[in-house]
Computed example of a mutant assay.
Amino acid sequence: MPSDPVFAGLRPRLLRLAYRMLGSVADAEDVVQDAYLRWQASDRAAVRQPAAMLRTIVTRLCLNELKSARRRRETYVGPWLPEPIVEDGESDSGDDITLPLMIALERLSPLERAAFLLHDIFGMSFDEVARAVDREPAACRKLASRARDHIRSARPRFAVAKEHGLEIATAFFAASRGGDVDRLRTLLADDVTASTDGGGRVPASPRPLIGIAEVMARHVELAAEFRRQPSLLIRYAMIDGLPGFVSVEGGGIVQTTALQIEADRIVAIYITRNPDKLRHLGDSRRQ
């Protein structure tokens, strides 16, 4: 943990920026650590705006990292989801980015992603954004505008209250693990989708399931598996801004399940069970 008080105070915000840019907790921590080393090597006494300087360093490191990350994702096995951030208490993210929006950010170019996040989410002026990404302010305005157009449909339209969302998550867990298909059907929207990220490391659907018929058919199959190997619920929680839960499934596989809810119906189910993406959660079975 950095001992520098200036950096320590800015570190949580820098981590949020790096995570929003990269969708990976581990990569975000590596980037912020690299930024710390560069900060330590700089003439800190001459820096008038440490926050601006560090945001610029982190942004440029993330832009470099995104190039290799995109190449890795071209060969990724099955649906790709960002590493889940599990929040047991009140969210301290300071923004309204939820998991669907994180997924939508993947469709942007690295510069569009940076311009949108820095200006729209982290409140930087376009002059500051321009210095961070080494572009003209006018170009950054266009980048952010294009980003908004691309991701408009992914912004939350009907935010569900946390308590109500967790009630629906509780009902979903009980119905899906208990094999109550009639109750499960009442919780799902007709156009529900389900995406499972196993990364080729653990069993997972190779493509997203689309529509209530496909999702229900899969849960009928899973009901038999749950009877043989019951799920162990660890806790209900907010996962990247969505209600859901952490559980241990058959074979000791830890997974997170996040539910996108609109008009009291689940419109999307996001399951992450790639163990490489859950290491930051620690040993969930002990929590």
Rank of each mutant, 00 (worst) to 15 (best):
M21R: 02
S68H: 03
A69Y: 01
G23E: 10
R20N: 15
R11N: 03
R11E: 15
Q49N: 14
L22S: 04
A18I: 05
Y36E: 10
R60S: 08
R20Y: 11
L15T: 10
D27L: 14
C62M: 06
A46P: 00
R16P: 00
K67H: 06
M21F: 09
A26F: 03
V58C: 09
S42L: 01
P50V: 09
A18K: 02
G23Q: 09
A45I: 02
M21Q: 14
L37T: 14
M21G: 07
L15K: 11
T56M: 11
R13A: 15
R16M: 05
Y36P: 13
R60K: 09
N64T: 06
R11W: 03
A28I: 08
Y19H: 12
T56N: 00
A51Y: 00
P12N: 03
S68Y: 03
L63C: 02
E65I: 08
L17C: 06
L15H: 05
T59N: 06
A51V: 04
V31H: 11
L17D: 02
R38L: 12
L54H: 11
V47F: 01
P50N: 05
L14D: 12
A51T: 08
R16K: 09
G9M: 01
A45W: 05
A69W: 01
L22Q: 07
N64L: 07
T59M: 08
D27C: 02
R13G: 13
G9N: 06
D43L: 05
R38W: 05
D27P: 01
A45H: 13
